[in-house]
Amino acid sequence: MTARWHLLLIVPFVVVFALTAASQFVFIERSLYEQRSFGRVGTELTLINYANFLTDRFYLNILWNTVKVSALATFFTLLLTFPLAYVIARMRSRWASVLIAGVVVSTFVTIVIKVFGLRIIFSSNGAVNRMLISLGITDRPYTIIGTEEGVVIGLMHFTIGFGVLILYSVVQTIPRSLEFAAQVHGASRLRTFWRVILPISLPGLVAAALMIFNMCMGAFTSAALLGGGRVLTLPVLIQRTVMMETKFAFGGALAAILLVCVIAINLLSIFILTRMVSGRRKVLA
């Protein structure tokens, strides 16, 4: 009887497989034929699309930019969200759950709406510019659209909620009594953070960093809307290549390169960190 039940599960499996693995496969397979103009592709298997990418400074620059803005956004997201997550996790009042609920809601509002909010705030007669001008800091309106800082801010806008949620659960696993013990035995708040909270959170922080970095590397909307066509990242480039230039084969190669880069960077960071950690201590408690 149970065996027959299990047969039913084949249907969702096939659907999920078709939607994920198969679509990737089609793309990667297509990337192995030469991209010709007007959306046509060659008939022989070749790595020419990859070679074109890897020998063109323009494309390599975009890859480097993507990694750079993602790393910066990850760094600042962690820097901003860790204290916030810490404070919420340590709150004893009911406001903690209200704040977490607020973070969850704002995190899952579509990024399109959030980015338009950012654009309004930073527009030439928006709040930020009015303040900067009235304070005399600048006399010309400053725009973040089309700048790297803009893209970084846009990416952070996308990831900050996730950052708070992940780090909140990390901090919650650290018993308060450890902080009490550190303090009572002579550590100031700063020393307690440095010697106890930070090292214990490190595995969680690394996991959060990788997740946020991966989200940034694949982020399209905030990068496209704030890059304004001047700052290009790989996801934006892929969208243009496929949708505007109908170069499916080359787009596929770009996607594969993005995927490989992300996997490589993740593996490398995990490798380096395990080496660092195991050098310092025998077990991860």
Binding site: P175, S177, L178, F180, A181, A182, V184, H185, R195, V196, P199, I200, R281, A285
Partner: peptide
Amino acid sequence: MVFQDYALFPH
């Protein structure tokens, strides 16, 4: 101070 849950630093 000695705590009920020991509060030893796990790392």
